[in-house]
Simulated assay, not measured.
Amino acid sequence: MSDATDTVDATDTGGARVWAFRDDRGTGLTAAHRPTRVLAYVRAGAALLDLGVRPVAVYGSGHDGEALDPVKAGGLAAAGVPYLGPGRTLTHARVAEAGEVDLVVDVTYDGKSAYALDEGLAERLGVPLVALSVGNELPLAAIVARFGELAGSLGAAGAATGPVGDAEAALRAAAGRTGLRVLALSGAGPEQVYLARPQAWPELARLAELGVRFVDPGPGPGANWLTTDWAYAVGLAPGLVLFDSRANAAPPHVVPPGARLTPWNPETPPSPAAFTRFFQDLTAALEDPSV
């Protein structure tokens, strides 16, 4: 876990200014100067862009193809940030096409390793690799705050602030008024669907704290998802379905009778702006029968 004292510029024993940051693997990282040219995993890069740090390029995960998934992209495409393809396929030469890089930013789900990039590539590039947690060992507010701390260490002003509180208040009120039962899922084709276990996802756990009534998928294997068929999902009789809208997920094959549908990005950028938009969209879906 991080130590906040390691997230700002420090001074070495010779009096020179250096950049220092402790990531969520517990790895203390340093550089002779504050990094300005960041290569990032798409989710991390979209968050940093929201927070005032523009990456020089981004890469995808093993679920991504050679084109940037617009659902995961946030404002990256509009900002002209190049996408280099899946992280595990990147080479030193491919990264060099984006120019010089002095920091890599990834995410971690297990607190031990970077999710989307071969850590050896960062070593070959000769630059620090920051991996910030997006798993359920941290609450959503702490995850967002950590990205704010990193952005602040990279020179972004006011990076950790945002209007999420107002959006949360509106969502809490809507959840209380409607009382809809909500099921979050990811389509795997006509025969199979993955049902999210709400406490395994920080944003869903936060929604539950705000009063959203999630449907429990029930017992079975899988820490994050219960793998089942569409008939089982329909039988849970949700009033609202949050469906995984990423390019690697299949669209809902069957809609439970009377249920509303609204998209959910399980890789929402961990920034106040991105979660404000998600909470606002969910509030509208809870309140508007036409959604």
Rank of each mutant, 00 (worst) to 15 (best):
M1E: 05
T13V: 10
G15C: 07
W19E: 11
W19F: 15
D24I: 06
A57V: 02
G65D: 04
D69E: 00
P70D: 14
P70C: 14
A73G: 01
G74F: 02
G75L: 00
G85K: 11
E97T: 15
V105S: 07
S113A: 07
S113G: 02
A114R: 05
D118I: 03
A122V: 01
R124T: 14
A131R: 14
V134E: 10
E137R: 13
L140P: 00
V144Y: 10
A145P: 00
R146I: 03
G148D: 08
G152D: 07
A156Y: 12
A169L: 15
L171R: 09
R172F: 04
G179V: 13
V182N: 03
L183C: 03
Y194Q: 09
Q199D: 12
G211L: 11
G220Y: 04
W225A: 01
T228D: 02
T228A: 03
A233G: 06
L240G: 06
L240H: 11
L242I: 00
L242Q: 06
F243W: 15
R246E: 09
V255R: 13
G258D: 04
P266A: 02
P269C: 02
P270Y: 11
T276K: 13
T276W: 10
F278C: 02
F278G: 02
D281G: 14
T283S: 05
A285C: 08
S290M: 06
